[in-house]
């Protein structure tokens, strides 16, 4: 486990900022203690200093996970957010999409959100903006990228895709092995 390098930090924060914008600051400067990002086996974990200190007790190969896993660096050094980061994306998300109850299940199986399943969408969402997907009961279900801007969404036909799927909570079951 080691702190992220400059470059890694930059890649990751760029990715994060697509979803929560400048709210990243809130992740790092928290009133309830210092929190930090650490890299462990290509995965980025977000944890408080207190846990970090304790985690030093464990050897590298025996340590599986600390705090919350945000995502991993691919072999090409890109950063991929995991669904496990949802707990920290959802409260700070700038742009949100709500899906109708009927389309909930479809999204949870890994499909894109279609116009017909779109319940609400934040005003002024730009195209390719990272969005967090909610159910109509305000339960965060995952995140993705807006395929159309809010304006376009009004016009397109019901079968066209409005949000590209990136991660959904169904992955907790579908791909449990690859979460960390």
């Amino acid at each position: 486990m080691r702190p992220l390098t400059e470059e890694e930090t930059k890649t990751m924060f760029e990715k994060l900022s697509k979803y929560i914008g400048e709210n990243i600051k809130l992740l790092v400067d928290r009133p309830d203690g210092t929190y930090c990002f650490r890299l462990h086996q290509d995965r980025v974990f977000y944890m408080s200093e207190k846990i970090l200190k304790l985690a030093t007790n464990f050897s590298r190969d025996k340590l599986i996970s600390v705090g919350t896993c945000f995502g991993k660096f691919t072999k090409t050094k890109k950063f991929r957010l995991h669904i496990t980061a949802l707990d920290f994306l959802a409260p700070y998300a700038k742009f949100k999409v709500w899906v109708k109850p009927g389309a909930e299940q479809s999204f949870l199986y890994g499909n894109h959100v279609l116009k017909s399943g779109l319940g609400r969408i934040t005003e002024n969402t730009m195209q390719y903006q990272g969005v967090v997907v909610y159910s109509m009961a305000d339960v965060p279900l995952g995140f993705g990228v807006a395929a159309k801007s809010t304006q376009e969404c009004r016009r397109v036909d019901p079968m066209s895709i409005v949000v590209f799927h990136q991660a959904d909570v169904g992955e907790f079951i579908r791909s449990e092995e690859t979460l960390t």
Partner: peptide, 20 residues
């Protein structure tokens, strides 16, 4: 793996998972 999955799903942030 199931421990990690469940802890993340349930929003547990104060856990360290290890394999001894």
């Amino acid at each position: 793996k199931s421990v990690v999955g469940n802890l993340h799903r349930l929003g547990v942030t104060n856990a360290v998972v290890c394999n001894y």
